[in-house]
């Protein structure tokens, strides 16, 4: 049995769903953030697999841009999580209930 790019696309879809479930089910801000990174990597896998299947370079190129943007997002995201953690001594989003209505 040969493993075609379609298999990678299916794996990426599974990874994406796992990441999305992590966002919805976990309550720790750091774990939720890791789930977002998992989703981005699932997208990268989709890009590479589709680019390989279609024999165009755009897929591989897109991955490089996504990785740069994800790195920038990590910088800002971790800074925000650290700021929240310093004030409240917890990174659980359940503690963040000051704003409601």
């Amino acid at each position: 049995m040969t493993v075609t790019p379609g298999w990678y696309m299916a794996l990426a879809a599974v990874l994406f769903v796992i990441g999305a479930s992590g966002i919805l089910l976990r309550r720790n801000a750091l774990v939720m953030f890791m789930s977002v990174e998992l989703m981005l990597n699932a997208v990268n896998l989709t890009f590479v697999a589709a680019g390989r299947e279609l024999n165009v370079i755009d897929g591989q190129i897109s991955v490089l841009f996504v990785m740069v943007v994800a790195a920038a997002e990590v910088v800002v995201g971790l800074a925000i999580i650290v700021a929240v953690f310093r004030r409240r001594k917890t990174a659980s989003v359940d503690e963040l209930a000051g704003l409601r209505g």
Binding site: I23, V36, A42, V43, T46, F47, S62, I80
Partner: peptide
């Protein structure tokens, strides 16, 4: 933090949309 987490989620969803349209 709320804006960041949900914004990052939205970006990931949007990006997956791009990848599937590309595919």
């Amino acid at each position: 933090l709320k804006y960041f987490l949900l914004g990052a989620l939205a970006s990931a969803i949007f990006l997956y949309g791009i990848a599937l349209v590309f595919a």
